[in-house]
């Protein structure tokens, strides 16, 4: 399945590295990334594939959210279909 990870927080060195390392350690493959800094707010959206990971997606979503909180970042990992449902006809 494909999921979307969003990361929002105050821009600091290494956010991208932290999040991508977190994914790599769990064998979650990153397909695409879109990232920008608005004023000093870091915003990133990643599309990932969970198929190679042994971690259940629900657990992964909880873990990355908690990891975000530890690092002062708002991180959401959500099934891609919720965005497709809402924004694509």
């Amino acid at each position: 399945m494909r999921a979307v990870i969003t990361v929002v927080g105050k821009d600091t060195v290494g956010i991208f590295a932290k999040v991508s390392t977190f994914c790599a350690e769990r064998n979650v493959n990153i397909n695409a990334v879109s990232q920008t800094v608005l004023e000093d707010l870091f915003c990133m959206m990643m599309q990932v594939t969970m198929d190679t990971s042994e971690v259940a997606f629900g657990e992964f979503a909880d873990a990355i959210k908690a990891y975000g909180e530890e690092n002062n970042l708002a991180i959401h990992a959500m099934h891609e279909d919720i965005f497709n449902a809402m924004h694509r006809i």
């Binding site: 969003t6 879109s34 920008t36 959206m45 959401h76 924004h87 694509r88």
Partner: peptide, 14 residues
């Protein structure tokens, strides 16, 4: 590339 845009995704999360 992702066929969703950032503002759509942030709108949903918001």
């Amino acid at each position: 590339m992702i066929d969703l845009n950032m503002s759509d995704i942030l709108e949903t999360i918001h």
